[in-house]
Write a protein that binds this DNA or RNA. Structure first.
Lengths: 232, 232
DNA sequence: CGCAACATTGAGACCAGTCAAGCAAAGTGG
DNA sequence: CCACTTTGCTTGACTGGTCTCAATGTTGCG
């Protein structure tokens, strides 16, 4: 697997959505020359907590998780990153979170100092970054909403609906069938549950006729209304 | 209560910490002339969800909560704002969260367009805003950590420690005695617990000798080490 | 004082965690 | 090609922590 290639914006699948789209073409190319394009295998660490945060990146393909690890070794997922999202913490002096590829992924990686300099010089980029971070903040608060739902059944149902939204290419209507890019263990970490409970709830939702499972990760939504009611 | 007064930066208790500290004095005064200083009574709504987000503000005194309200009427607190923090969502076209004063509070309020224009013209302010939003993001992820802790006892202990940190004027060491600006109900909303459980856990922490209660909101930390161990 | 809001305490039910076993799919090596 | 391992998922029985429901205390205010 080639691990450091030049950035080619013309073939970028998220060129219209990523933060770099705020730049004029010339500036964008200049930024592109400062960074490189990398691939990550499923499970590979992209940034380890404790690293000096010297890089920042835009995910172009795949999915990633950001997580903390407690003293006792428990991992908690605090955010998911989808294509066009940013990896790494732009601001913190050192990374406080692990960033890991959930599926085989690709990203444009930039030295942080260069990126920050560009943001200083181009207010449009700075504004776009503020919007992006604000969106992340909203997502993070959405996750709080998800987790604080009391019942395990509600959390799992809400997660399925959230992924159905994220998996949809069109913003107008949501995907009816899709793959959860997470293992049961990762779902459990994300929702603050155990693997067993997640499994039980999926079984319960299936036998209630709300969803169907296709293999271990495939989900088809059969009764969205009931699922939404369950999600609360 | 006077509700709209000019902004006087000289007497501002957070002049050195708020985002406006990134500006040179002249720029800061210019910004100050665009906004005004307001007081809010405990319980007063500062921004209602659904409002066009036309203002942004810096909290100078007191405390505020940001919350969502579900279909079923359940309120969930997704963030707390302490002095020098920003109220409102800088980026979203419409507010998605309620912002409410937890105690009698004061804030510097600015028209959002003016604030954004200043950020475009002054990279230092834009960078400061990015740092601030990044900090909010970290806090939000900290809250996720707090909520997903399994045991109610841990959550309550961690919350007390978090407030002890926030209540301290000096960053080096934390306050040993302070007031929780939240009712039991609000703590429950924040931690995803019930009022009764919160009350029981406080009683348990007190009889374990970790804290003492002064009235219904006063907290004194007696054994920080044990409290930290309990928080996990 | 008396009311209203908030907080505490108790008893019982229920949901999710723990422990443990069994199953399924994918890869490994003889 | 087939045993064997590994990894991930499912299911069951039991335990325990938290919610629910209900009653009692406490505080603050008119």
């Amino acid at each position: 697997m080639s691990n450091a290639a030049p950035i080619v914006c013309d073939s970028c699948p998220v060129a219209d959505r990523a933060v770099c789209s705020a730049l004029a073409e010339g500036d964008r190319d200049e930024l592109a020359r400062m960074g490189h394009h990398r691939r990550y295998a499923r499970g590979e660490t992209i940034v380890a907590a404790g690293d000096a945060a010297t890089l920042c990146a835009t995910l172009t393909r795949g999915a990633a998780k950001m997580s903390t690890i407690d003293r006792d070794g428990t991992e908690r997922i605090v955010a998911l990153v989808h294509p066009a999202g940013m990896l790494g913490q732009l601001f913190a002096p050192t990374a406080t979170l692990h960033v890991t590829a959930l599926t085989d992924s690709e990203a444009c990686v930039f030295p942080r100092a260069d990126f920050a300099a560009m943001a200083d010089a181009r207010p449009a980029l700075a504004r776009r970054l503020l919007t992006e971070v604000g969106r992340e903040l909203d997502e993070s608060r959405g996750l709080i909403d998800l987790i604080s739902k009391r019942q395990a059944r509600s959390r799992v149902a809400a997660l399925i609906l959230a992924f159905s939204r994220a998996a949809s290419p069109a913003p107008c209507h949501d995907a009816a069938a899709f793959d959860l890019p997470l293992t049961r263990g990762e779902i459990a970490q994300l929702l603050g549950l155990t693997i067993e409970t997640v499994s039980r709830m999926l079984t319960a939702l299936e036998s209630a006729g709300m969803i169907a499972r296709r293999g271990s990760h495939g989900i088809a939504i059969l009764d969205r209304g009931a699922l939404e009611a369950t999600a609360g």
